[in-house]
């Protein structure tokens, strides 16, 4: 039914509109294909056999499907350790960043707070001026924070952009009457924050938490500069070593024979492992984002209105 009616509409369009729409659909189809194809290709490779991959027989769907790549990924101790570190950094960084930034947003949302203007400028300045890589490095070194989790999760805890987003949300969605009611009941600023603002700010807390979590999960720069103990490396550093610098060793099990076949198979397997590793590291975000994307969109839109 519906199809028929839209086809009917299409027929009635003027020729110019038809040409224009055809162009638009073509552009979209092309763009979406280009976005999807690399992802599809990586997934298909990760589920193919090492031989099919090496011989270049994978184009769209998995060839000789199997999970050898995933077995290799999961038997690699470094990947496990990187995964555990990333989860630790992401959880800590998200909890810390969300709390501190939300507190900042709350105090900035109180219009009667005497130092509100000063604080706003104090925060905003940091969006335009920063010490730069080296002064930051030396400063963290002096605080003895280098090579600890704190160098990763603490410096970015106040995200000025997210603070402004959250402040705008609190100001525009929580009715001022609630504050007056709380004050009349003898409630303090702290009680108002904990009992009224926080419960009503769940959507914006989600925006903050997700942005911090995404940043930490994919972060690579801070770990590269501030960490030098391999046991503390997050997943992204391990990924770089294995994926880009090719320093993979799938022989950590005691299978090491020296015959040529075995070696070739290992080399194939380490190539296959790369694809499985890409999937294992990106899957958590790629699986959840369709359900949570509205929060990212919301943050971006509030941020753009009152940037």
């Amino acid at each position: 039914m519906k199809r028929k009616s839209s086809l009917h509409k299409w027929r009635n369009l003027p020729a110019g509109d038809k040409a224009y729409l055809a162009f638009v659909y073509l552009f979209l189809a092309l763009f979406v294909t280009i976005v999807i194809y690399p992802l599809l290709y990586v997934i298909s490779c990760s589920f193919s056999s090492p031989e099919a991959l090496i011989q270049g027989r994978v184009f769209f769907l998995p060839v000789e499907p199997g999970i050898q790549g995933y077995e290799a990924v999961f038997s690699n101790a470094r990947i496990w350790s990187g995964y555990a570190n990333t989860i630790l950094y992401t959880a800590t960084g998200t909890a810390l960043g969300t709390s501190v930034s939300m507190i900042a947003a709350y105090v900035l949302s109180r219009r009667e707070f005497p130092v509100r203007g000063f604080l706003t400028i104090f925060f905003m300045v940091t969006m335009f001026i920063s010490g730069g890589t080296i002064p930051m490095y030396l400063w963290l070194k002096r605080l003895h924070m280098l090579n600890t989790i704190w160098a990763i999760v603490v410096p970015g805890a106040v995200s000025v952009w997210l603070v402004i987003v959250a402040r705008t949300f609190v100001q525009s969605t929580i009715p001022e009457e609630l504050f007056e009611a709380t004050s009349l009941d003898g409630g303090s600023y702290l009680q108002y924050f904990l009992r009224v603002v926080l419960p009503l700010s769940k959507p914006i807390l989600a925006v903050l938490a997700l942005n911090f979590a995404l940043g930490q999960w994919n972060s690579y720069y801070n770990a590269l500069i501030y960490l030098n103990d391999a046991s503390k490396y997050p997943l992204q550093i391990i990924l770089r070593d294995i994926l880009i610098q090719n320093s993979v060793d799938v022989t950590n099990s005691a299978s090491g024979g020296t015959d040529v076949n075995n070696q070739m198979h290992r080399q194939y397997l380490s190539e296959l492992l790369k694809y499985s590793l890409i999937i294992v590291s990106s899957a958590p975000l790629l699986i959840i984002y369709p359900f949570l994307q509205k929060y990212f969109i919301k943050g971006t839109m509030i941020g753009s209105v009152k940037g």
Binding site: I103, A104, V107, T126, G131
Partner: peptide, 26 residues
């Protein structure tokens, strides 16, 4: 406002320590 000042002190300290202090290093 003392509670607001106290709350504000938390993000203020973070920004002072990790955004302004490094600027000194310029």
């Amino acid at each position: 406002y003392w509670q607001l000042y106290l709350l504000a002190l938390i993000p203020f300290t973070f920004v002072l320590l990790f955004n302004y202090m490094p600027m000194y290093g310029i």
